[in-house]
């Protein structure tokens, strides 16, 4: 139920994003989803990839500062109100969301929301209780 997200520390200078992506490409790691949070000096690149262990290994070898975080991926209908409805059970369960990002699944029928929350288990219970599909790890890497 928990998905491994790989995060990378990047200084705000030209070419760094390219270098991370190149490094993953050379290792044959596919990027499924990504988001970037930035400040004036640096950014944090968050990635869902086909093979998190391999991604961490090659990035560490290439001297990037990397960490792994557990997140939750939920399938929601790709239609108006889709995201709002999935947030309702989390709100009711008092789960605080640190950040989230979304991407549209290949078929185009549903969207996938990646949540980073403090209380992972409560969040999973609340979402399942609300009838949502919390995606299995392997399925997310395979999207």
């Amino acid at each position: 139920m928990k998905v491994r997200q790989v995060s990378v520390f990047l200084e705000n200078k030209s070419g760094r994003l390219y270098e991370v992506c190149r490094c993953l490409a050379d290792a044959g790691v596919n990027i499924r989803a990504l988001s970037i949070a930035e400040t004036a000096d640096y950014g944090v690149l968050r990635l869902i990839v086909s093979d998190p262990a391999k991604a961490i290994q090659v990035m560490t070898e290439n001297a990037f500062t990397v960490s792994e975080t557990e997140v939750i991926a939920v399938e929601v209908p790709d239609e108006p109100g889709g995201l709002a409805s999935v947030l309702a059970p989390l709100y009711d369960a008092n789960v605080n969301i640190e950040y989230l990002y979304c991407f549209v699944e290949k078929s185009g029928k549903s969207a996938i929301v990646v949540f980073r929350v403090e209380q992972l288990d409560e969040a999973i219970r609340a979402l399942q209780g609300g009838g949502y599909t919390v995606m299995r790890e392997e399925d997310v890497y395979r999207i």
């Binding site: 997200q5 995060s7 520390f9 949070a37 400040t39 640096y42 944090v44 968050r46 560490t60 500062t65 990397v66 960490s67 975080t69 640190e98 950040y99 980073r116």
Partner: peptide, 13 residues
Amino acid sequence: VSPEMFSDEIKRL
């Protein structure tokens, strides 16, 4: 930034 200090959350950094 060493790996021990790094966090995926900007607020921690």
